[in-house]
Design a binder for these strands. Structure first.
Lengths: 171, 171
DNA sequence: GAAAATATGTCAGGACTGTTGACATAAATC
DNA sequence: GATTTATGTCAACAGTCCTGACATATTTTC
């Protein structure tokens, strides 16, 4: 059993408002600097952020269908097609006909794609680890809780699905 | 004096790594849903995110020069020109010749622009307030600390400058 | 005061990413 | 067999970013 620290009193509505007003800017700057470390790597490979996002979700959800990827990214199939074409042509992503439903094209990251994706994940993870190192575990869980609350319920569920995927991979 | 809660033990490197790996996804989803509430408003006004960003920083730093705005947004003057042209033509932003340096064009949000900017800020602030309400103050400061740590030193200083601007405005 | 530097604006063209609309094919389902 | 579903593709357009080049007004420097 750990000690149960005294919970701090709730913030006043005015204080919440001020914190939220400031957080608008925190979101902008933090996200920009977060994406920037990946952008630098992508540039070397002549790829854009859209390729990064597609590669990321294919890598995290190996064997994902095109339709499911579209729902996750929330873009049109025409937008995805352009991005996917390049990933496939560059040998970063492979397609496999679905076993139960042969209309489906299951997406898989190739060995080469895995290397690039790892590089991208490493860069962003390193930035985040540095940001977390100074903070105590409570800060970290606070960060996590707030980010989850900002997300829509739909995306929260997608995130939960990722956790399961990562956990089963680790096993 | 408040009680000093027992600080939690530091996380293991492996735990930090896992938390950072998960945070990659938190950043993606939270930022997407955060920007989405503004995008819906912008759509009604036939404006894009670039207009939002420019309007935001002009509004927060009234009288900012074009050069300073360029440094803040980290885009080229040609990119900004297109965005600024529309904001000015639509009567959302005004320009004023600099008093000490007459080459400068100081940027100011018009009354109309202020109304739109308030609408945008309100929408994002409301989302964040909802996200904060459930969390205790410690979570909130944890979120803030992590976001600040993710940012570059340069952007952290920009953020601090905003705090001063907001504080002096409130006074 | 002339030359150089600075702040800003603009034209041209290209890349990436998103959209809508239309149409095609193969496979599953009713 | 007809319909629906999963996917792919062609075409056109918009927004946002970039590079490169050039122009103007104003300030600073020599």
């Amino acid at each position: 059993m750990s000690d149960s620290p005294t919970p701090a009193p709730p913030l006043s509505p005015a204080a919440l408002d001020t914190a939220a007003r400031e957080a608008i800017e925190l979101m902008f700057f933090a996200y920009r600097d977060f994406t920037d470390v990946a952008d630098r790597i992508l540039e070397e490979h002549d790829l854009g952020r859209a390729h990064h996002r597609a590669l990321y979700f294919i890598g995290t959800n190996g064997g994902i269908t095109v339709g499911h990827l579209l729902e996750t990214l929330k873009i049109t199939k025409q937008s995805l097609a352009r991005v996917l074409r390049r990933l496939i042509d560059n040998g970063l992503v492979d397609q496999k006909v679905g076993s139960s439903d042969r209309r489906q094209r299951l997406l898989l990251v190739s060995k080469e794609g895995e290397a690039l994706l790892e590089e991208l994940i490493d860069a962003q993870r390193a930035l985040l680890v540095r940001a977390f190192e100074g903070a105590d575990p409570d800060s970290l869980s606070g960060f996590r809780g707030v980010m989850l609350s900002i997300m829509t319920e739909e995306d929260r569920q997608r995130f939960q699905a990722t956790l399961s995927a990562l956990a089963s991979r680790a096993a």
